Amino acid sequence: MNMHILLVEDDKQLQRQLVAQLSQFGHEVETADDGPAALSIVGQQAFDIIILDWMLPNIDGITVLRQLREAGMNLPILMLTALGQVFDKVEGFNAGADDYVVKPVDPLELNARLLALLRARRANEQPTDTISAGDIVISPSRLRAWRTGVALTLSQTEFKLLLELVRNAGTIMTRPMLIERIWGHDFVPATNIVEAHIRHLRVKLLEHGDDPISTQRGLGYMLRA
């Protein structure tokens, strides 16, 4: 899934690095060096997603974010930040951020989060009540899931986990991404909480076919599309 991305980053070295890395994933990247430039270019071009640095000259990233949301801009916005405190994350989400990545940026993690955000936004825009991947069908509103037409008996956490995997089928979901989306951004997990729930989910899915979940060692998990 290729995207048209606006990268707002004043650090020229990091900007060039991210443009090169994102281009390798097939994305088209436009850049802005500060808040006013970002606000100007957004009014001139259509983007799929915005990567917005927290600390910008002239107008900081949070202010830019608020102005974009107040202007009715509802496309996904991912914040880049060197800050890790809880109150900074809360401020970002309250201002309208969809996700964040802490510097230094891992390109695989960044790309995975971008794809997940775009898929989630498109899924939310679909009028249908169900989403599917292969022989797995999920109804988010009814909290029900089926495989090969057979209803699955899942715990609430297993359902959320399967829903995230189905929504992002064919895309690697990293362990931090799954923890944030299912347990919350400020949840401090047990060391193997994701692995344990993946194992339980696999057992239930294997009752109705082959294992559809691929373990990407050192990265995360992916539901085969």
Rank of each mutant, 00 (worst) to 15 (best):
D53C: 05
P36K: 08
G96L: 14
F87N: 12
A97V: 10
D88C: 02
G92A: 13
L68E: 10
I49M: 10
N74F: 06
M55F: 05
V101Y: 02
V42G: 00
L75E: 04
I77H: 12
M79R: 08
G92P: 14
R66S: 11
A116C: 09
R69I: 11
A95W: 15
A38S: 04
N74P: 02
I59G: 00
G43K: 13
G61D: 06
Q85S: 14
Y100F: 14
V86R: 15
D88A: 04
V42S: 02
L118V: 12
R121W: 10
R119P: 00
L65K: 09
I62K: 12
G43C: 12
Y100W: 11
E91L: 12
A82E: 03
A32R: 09
A32Y: 14
D106A: 07
A97D: 07
S40L: 12
L68G: 05
L80Y: 06
A37V: 04
N74M: 10
P36E: 07
N58G: 00
I62N: 07
P36Y: 13
L114S: 07
K103Y: 00
L52Y: 04
A116D: 08
W54N: 10
N111A: 09
R119D: 03
A116E: 12
L117F: 03
D98P: 00
M79K: 05
D48S: 09
A71T: 07
G72P: 13
L75G: 02
A38D: 03
L52S: 03
A95D: 11
R122P: 01
V42N: 01
D98Q: 05
D60L: 06
K89M: 13
G72K: 10
L108G: 02
V42D: 01
P57W: 07
V90I: 15
V42L: 15
K89A: 11
R121Y: 09
P57L: 11
E125I: 00
D98A: 00
A112F: 05
L39D: 10
Q44Y: 06
D98E: 08
L114K: 09
I41H: 08
G92C: 12
L65Y: 12
L80A: 06
D106Q: 07
D88P: 01
L39F: 14
L75D: 02
P107A: 02
K103M: 06
Q67E: 15
V105I: 11
F93W: 15
E109W: 03
G35M: 10
K103N: 03
M73P: 00
V64G: 02
A95H: 12
R122A: 04
R113G: 07
P127S: 09
L65F: 13
